[in-house]
Design a protein around this nucleic acid. Sequence first.
DNA 1: GGATCAAATATCCTATAGGATTTTGGGAAG
DNA 2: CTTCCCAAAATCCTATAGGATATTTGATCC
Lengths: 230, 230
Amino acid sequence: MAKSAQSVGKLPSNPVSAQPADRTITRPSGLAEEVYRRIRADILSLRLPPETRVSVDSLARELGVSQTPIREALSMLEANGLVSKRHFAGYMTSARMDRAQLDELFEFRLLVEPYAARKAAQGMGESDMAALASGAEAGSHDAFADMDTAFHRLIAQGAGNHLIADSLARLHIHVHIFRSCFRREITEEAVHEHDTIIAAIRARNGAKAEAAMRSHIERSYGRLRDFIKE
Amino acid sequence: MAKSAQSVGKLPSNPVSAQPADRTITRPSGLAEEVYRRIRADILSLRLPPETRVSVDSLARELGVSQTPIREALSMLEANGLVSKRHFAGYMTSARMDRAQLDELFEFRLLVEPYAARKAAQGMGESDMAALASGAEAGSHDAFADMDTAFHRLIAQGAGNHLIADSLARLHIHVHIFRSCFRREITEEAVHEHDTIIAAIRARNGAKAEAAMRSHIERSYGRLRDFIKE
DNA sequence: GGATCAAATATCCTATAGGATTTTGGGAAG
DNA sequence: CTTCCCAAAATCCTATAGGATATTTGATCC
């Protein structure tokens, strides 16, 4: 049995880590996955803004593949909540979060992510811990957004629970989109808060890591909440 | 704009609630969704046991539809972790949970579901509260499994957070499958624990509901853990 | 000027055919 | 009896054509 299927709700977003000695023959792994990643990247980069119609025909012509893999990729994106489908009307990128959804999302993060930080401080691997970066060296907003995603992903994975990591990853996508719609600069405060969390984790201080993460999420919520009036 | 897309990660598992006055014309809503529900039901009923190969051709012939909707449905099921795909090798129902996955799943439930029970006790609607049933009247294991699913779903929805409800629903599917693989009778203890939770929620006692739910999940974990040796 | 209706367009949904790959079964050698 | 290898079969993946439907546009009427 393959060593995959480790996670219950496996997302194709996790690319196979490049083996140092790539003995295995090239596994094309299907056009559908490649298309999935391509469209997903376009949505994250706002090349496909929210509420934008996505045509199967156009994508098929643009990417030079048949309609079937496009359709499969869009079905997966729909299951992950990045696009929505209406019968006989086509696909459309999901709407930007409104106030209620933002509240729900941060309530969930506040419930799960501090717990993950505590567990990561207790049992995280040394190599992953060394890879933690606050994003201070990021040169652009996009670079910082990627480093922010990696930061939270590393901590979630450090908790040693694939369900926690997958849930938070799925949610972080929407945080990423929401923030990219408004902020185009790097928030210094977030960098400092990241540093505080990193210090607590490196000190193996679970309680402090949990508190720092909770504070970080609360402040992050405060920074984003004002962008929605309704 | 339709009132859908309320949930960020909307699953097609939620059928549209039948409107009392169904003025809208019938929306076929696509063959893909119907196929999705059909295959999903087959997996939950163990008509498609874990690690079973699922052929696109066979399904297309059996259901009398083309391959495209089958393929779309399987892509959605893959994104939800119910089947896995290998390139040029077809689809296969996911493997039954092993010990590590069971541990992770109950760690997650223990983190989220007691919190949901507390919030449900505080703000749950009267009609949903009246619909809570412990499953004592269930006549078969399958009927009890459905009532158990409905019980936990109602509480999760009562918390007023779609992300919590969706996450728990997605996980409960795997609990359902796992339990159906071993237990074919109704556990009296679970019914009593459900009654305790219902009483606490009806009394609007958040702390007691949270504690009762925590105890229920811990005991449920104890009842299931023994079935895995490894 | 605004609203209503109908035709045209764009798009999706389905069905079928051909190429590529994995799986499976049987047979032979050790 | 087990292991290895090869060929046939089944299956998946891709591409294309035709039917069905929602959306859009434009003209007409009030």
